[in-house]
Design a protein around this nucleic acid. Structure first.
Lengths: 253, 253
DNA sequence: TCGAATTTGTGCGTATGTATC
DNA sequence: GGATACATACGCACAAATTCG
């Protein structure tokens, strides 16, 4: 077995000290120069080790100030439950498992947005076909916990009162109810989940640092005739929100 | 809006060129020195940009050889579906959604392993209580696609023929069937998913580079009396396996 | 209000080790 | 063995942000 490079050893040591509460939550670490002297390594190595922990959400670097042990905010739980809880729809909230706790959100819609290629493919429409695009910021305790951008074919709801997800009588009621209003029955959702890192814009909206680990979810709702009626890109930073999937085990017969 | 730092601009430009097939899949990029000259930036900046793309699984650096556009292996799909496919159990495979395609795995069990604190907490047993630990390497097409390490309280299966997940008459049959053999009915599983990066050991086992993005899943199976009967840590590198969750939308009545 | 010191964030040049060809 | 290229490591410089006197 090959030995680990220095910057990983330093990263592990920093992790250990934080786990052992050598530095408390929210506390400021010694400066890079000081740590480099302590560890007997160069400035750049400490920097690199800290970058790893920053993207893991363990540390937080503040320019001009210092590097701090990240405050562990009580994380929201985004539950994908396959068992009926009765909660999701009753709350008038999102159609798939709500966050635990009182959730609010802010949305901004644009109508007549031409579908880019990847969205068109997911919705089964032609590139350039018009869509209603809505960007959401989901808040818990009035702090952002995740972002989503949803796309609906304009053709489905054009001319109806529910054309705008965040307007009309069913504002914020979720895709399932709004689609029901125009005679479409939504039967299931498919979500692709993959790990990623936040870019500058996402980080700014979420109040975290650029490059922190997140889960990117591509969610698509389908109606009973197999047509995609909505698709969304969801960005869930690990530090703010945990994703839980509950699956029933089907009985053997 | 502040402008992006150079290394992010370079990373974006590299991404764009790959998306535009300026460099084909599997092709070798120009050397760092050459790219640095082309972009008019330093060697270190190109290195940093490439590191980002390597952890995203877009590029692959081979020491002594060059930097290549990562081959998009046909990715396995790990499906978490509520709808009964009939496949999962019949195949004697994993109890939760199988991979698409012929899956095999190699496992190695250790009995009488004292439970570490975090595992004990998940299983609802005392730290140090004995467990059966099994490390799996899941293969598709005889290439590894994800790793898992499962823990079962030794107390549950000790003295039975199914004490070893990968031994006895039901070797590899999955938790649900094995537990049924000792009179325990497994009713559901709870999975916590979060993004992470592979460490050196995981990367070696999976045949990917250290630091590539992955999803870490903590999965726990529960029996009808609410007791945790097995818990596992699963590492799914994004480049090799995609995770899909299918959720039915419960009908309004 | 201003300015100096500190600290992070970014960028550059170089040296050394090591794997590949 | 030698040339090439990546991986790691070091030292330095400068900008931007913060802190504090």
């Amino acid at each position: 077995m090959r030995e680990q490079p220095t910057y990983l050893r330093v990263a592990d040591e920093l992790r250990r000290r934080i786990a052992d509460h050598v530095w408390a939550e929210g506390a400021q670490l010694p400066s890079r120069a000081q740590l480099a002297k302590d560890f007997g390594v160069s400035d750049a190595i400490v920097r690199r080790a800290q970058e790893l922990l920053i993207s893991d959400g363990v540390l937080e670097g503040r320019a001009g100030s210092g590097t701090y042990v990240a405050e562990r905010r009580t994380r929201a739980r985004m539950v994908r439950a396959h068992v009926r809880t009765g909660l999701d729809e009753a709350a008038g909230g999102p159609d798939l498992g709500a966050l635990t706790g009182p959730e609010t959100w802010e949305g901004r819609s644009d109508v007549m947005v031409p579908a880019p290629a990847h969205i068109a493919a997911r919705l089964g429409i032609a590139e350039g076909d018009y869509c209603v695009r809505t960007a959401y910021e989901h808040l818990l305790d009035s702090k952002p916990v995740y972002l989503s951008t949803s796309w609906e074919p304009y053709e489905i709801t054009s001319g109806t009162l529910v054309v705008l997800p965040d307007g009309g009588p069913l504002a914020g009621a979720g895709v399932v109810r709004r689609m029901a209003e125009v005679g479409i029955t939504v039967t299931h959702a498919v979500e692709r989940m993959e790990p990623g890192q936040t870019d500058a814009e996402e980080a700014h909206l979420l109040g975290v640092q650029r490059g922190v680990l997140c889960t990117r979810i591509e969610r698509t709702f389908y109606s009973d005739d197999g047509r995609a009626v909505e698709t969304a890109d969801i960005v869930v930073p690990a530090a703010l929100c945990e994703i839980v999937v509950e699956t029933p085990v089907s009985r053997r017969r």
